[in-house]
Amino acid sequence: MRRDIAAAAMELFATKGYEATTVDEIAAAAGVARRTFFRHFRSKEEAIFPDHDDTLERVKAVLDAAPPHEYPLDTVCRGIREVMRMYAAQPAVSVERYRLTREVPTLREREIASVSRYERLFTRYLLGHFDEGAHQDGDDDPLLAEVAASAVVTAHNHVLRRWLRAGAQGEVEGQLDRAFAVVRARFAGVGLPHGPTGRGGAQAGAAGPPAVLTAGGEGSDVLVALARTDAPLSEVMRTIEKALNRG
C-alpha cells in the first residue's frame, strides 16, 4: 500500500507539479481514502521517500550480523550498499525523485534528514570499534567515528548522484568499490579497529587496508610498500598505483 500511494504521488508530482498536488488527489489516484494515506504517511513530502525506514532496518541487520573479524569500515560500506540497492530497484522512480528533490526545497530537506539517519547509525557502530587508546585522556569526543561515517556516506552519495544524473544508466557496483577504496585508504593507520587482540590491536583475521610508504629523496625511483599478508591483492595494487601516480 505504501508503494502504491508513493507511486501515485510521484506520477502526480511529475505531471501536475509538487506544489499543485494535494493529499486528497494522491489518495484518489491511489484508490484509497484520505485517512488511509495518513496511516502510512504524515505528509505528501514523506510519500516521496517510502522505503527509507525499511532500508534503515536492513542496514542495521548488516551491521548486527557482521563477523567479528571484519574490518569495521568494510562492514559500514556493505551496509550502505542496501541504500544503493533501494534506489536501483526502481531506477525510473529514483531519477524522478532526484529531479524533484533538486527543485523543491522541502523535499531536499527531507532527503538530508534521511541521510543523517544513516550517518548516525554508522557513527554509533564505529564508536564500538575504535582503538580506545587513540583518544586523549578524558576526551570522549566521537570525532573519528563521525568523520569515518560521513566519509562512507559521502562516497556513496557521490556515486549515487552521478548515476542518477546519467539517467540511472550503467553499473554502480564497480564505482562504489572504487569510492570505498579511497575512503579505506584515507583511514589506514588511524587505529580504527580494536578487537580480540586487545586495546589498539588489529582484529584477528581482519583484512584492513594496506599501508604504503615511499622511501628515498626527491627524484627517487624507489617505492617501499607495506601491506598486511591478508590484505586483498586488488587493494594492495590500487594503493601502490596511487602512490606511484602521486610521485
Rank of each mutant, 00 (worst) to 15 (best):
R39M: 07
F41Y: 15
F41I: 02
S43K: 03
E45A: 12
E46I: 03
E46Q: 15
F49R: 03
F49T: 00
F49P: 03
V59C: 15
V62D: 06
V62A: 07
L63S: 01
A65I: 00
A66I: 02
A66T: 12
H69P: 02
H69Y: 08
H69T: 12
E70F: 03
Y71W: 09
Y71I: 07
P72V: 03
L73Q: 01
L73M: 10
R78K: 14
G79C: 00
R81V: 15
E82T: 03
E82G: 08
M84I: 08
Y87P: 02
A88N: 06
A88W: 01
A89L: 01
A92W: 05
S94E: 05
V95S: 07
E96Y: 00
R97W: 00
R97Y: 01
R99D: 11
L100C: 11
L100N: 03
T101I: 14
T101A: 13
R102A: 15
V104D: 11
R110W: 10
R110P: 05
I112Q: 09
A113F: 02
V115G: 06
V115S: 10
S116A: 07
S116H: 05
R120T: 13
R120K: 12
L121M: 14
F122H: 03
T123F: 04
T123D: 06
Y125W: 05
L127R: 14
H129L: 03
F130E: 12
D137V: 10
D137N: 08
G138H: 09
G138Y: 04
D141L: 07
L143K: 13
L143T: 15
V152G: 11
T154A: 05
N157S: 14
H158W: 13
V159N: 11
L160I: 01
L164N: 03
R165W: 01
A168P: 01
